[in-house]
Amino acid sequence: MSKTPREIFESYLYAGTMTRNADALAENFTADGVFEAPLMPAGAAFPKRLVGREEIRSAMAAYYAQPVNDDRSPNLEKSGYVLHTTSDPDVFIAEIDTVFDGDAVDTSVSLVQIFRIRDGKIARLRDYFAPELMS
């Protein structure tokens, strides 16, 4: 039985954002999967483009091993997402609003991810977010 877009998205979200588990994240991708963050500048700590499950695994493990400059954590009750299906059954879009609790004011971060899937795995993910969020 094939995975639904929601199952694929939630597995990806849990592996990456919630647990920062590079092995689990990489397993969400096809062997030749592509992970892109097109808005990232060259030389940024967060990878701009990764090709293949093993490159995704090693690059994201290195990224996750870096010290976190921010002790904020997302407020899951205030955060949310909407998945949009398309006329292509292998493509869906995630519209995400993440809220981080602040001392005086909450911070909201919005982003869009475009998923192309094959056989229940991510064949290509384009992640559009403000690059300064990852520094």
Rank of each mutant, 00 (worst) to 15 (best):
A130P: 11
F129C: 15
E95L: 09
L111K: 03
D127P: 01
F129T: 13
V68N: 12
N75L: 01
E132A: 15
A104Y: 10
D88R: 03
I122A: 04
S58V: 09
T107N: 08
K78Q: 12
T86W: 06
M134P: 06
Y81G: 06
V68W: 09
M134V: 10
R118I: 00
Y64W: 10
G80E: 03
L133N: 14
K121H: 08
V112Y: 09
Q66I: 04
A104K: 14
A62I: 07
G120W: 04
R72G: 09
A104D: 14
D103E: 14
D103G: 12
V109W: 11
I122H: 06
M60E: 02
I93S: 01
R116Q: 13
Y81D: 07
A65H: 08
E77P: 01
Q66W: 06
L111M: 10
Y63D: 06
S58P: 07
P74R: 14
N75C: 10
S110W: 03
D90F: 04
P89T: 04
A104Q: 13
I96V: 12
D119R: 10
N75S: 13
L125G: 08
A94T: 07
I122N: 01
L133A: 10
S108W: 11
Q66F: 03
T107I: 13
D119K: 00
Y81L: 08
Q113V: 02
F92A: 07
P74H: 09
V91G: 05
D71R: 14
S79Y: 07
E132D: 15
I93G: 00
E95A: 03
F100H: 03
D106V: 03
R57W: 00
I122V: 07
R118A: 12
D71C: 08
R124H: 13
D119I: 09
L133D: 07
K121W: 01
R72P: 08
D119C: 01
R57L: 02
E132T: 15
S87F: 12
R72I: 10
